[in-house]
Simulated assay, not measured.
Amino acid sequence: MAWVVGTGVLIGLLAVASGISTLRTGWLLPTARRHVTRPRLHGFGALLVGASVLLHSLFYFHILPSVSWEVRFFGGNALLLAGLLLIALSQLLPQRRNSDHAGLPGN
């Protein structure tokens, strides 16, 4: 069972690294570049998803003090769903318009 949780740690670290690089530089994975219209939302969503996976594994390996299973279950699922919602919104919301060019004729 430990190798499954260890794989989750690796995936969580990759998601956190992807979120940080998206927030700092605007870089996205090549598979997401065409679909994402708001990179900052995507970065925050990736951070929440990665944090959810990492917290579950930190509780499993007893690195963090143990809390009740309800807190772990509902807290982890809330983080995961919030991250997935932000990732979905980053792809579904329309691209922001530049207000400098809104009043120019021909636009």
Rank of each mutant, 00 (worst) to 15 (best):
D100P: 03
S21E: 11
V53T: 15
S68G: 15
R40M: 08
M1E: 14
V53W: 07
R34Y: 11
L104N: 07
R40K: 13
L93K: 15
R34P: 02
H35V: 12
W69T: 15
V53F: 14
A82N: 02
V5Y: 04
A82R: 00
L48Y: 11
N107I: 13
A46T: 07
I20Q: 08
G76D: 06
F73R: 12
L64A: 06
H62R: 08
L10R: 05
G8F: 11
L41V: 01
S52Q: 09
A88H: 10
G6M: 11
L54K: 08
L10D: 04
V4M: 08
A2H: 12
L29T: 10
T22V: 10
Q91I: 09
M1Y: 11
R33Y: 14
L10A: 13
G76Y: 03
H42T: 04
L23H: 02
N77Q: 12
L104I: 10
A51M: 13
L79P: 01
S66W: 01
A82F: 02
I63C: 04
P94F: 04
G83E: 01
L13A: 10
V5N: 03
L13T: 11
A102Y: 02
A51C: 09
L86A: 02
P39W: 14
P105N: 04
L86Q: 02
P105T: 12
R72D: 02
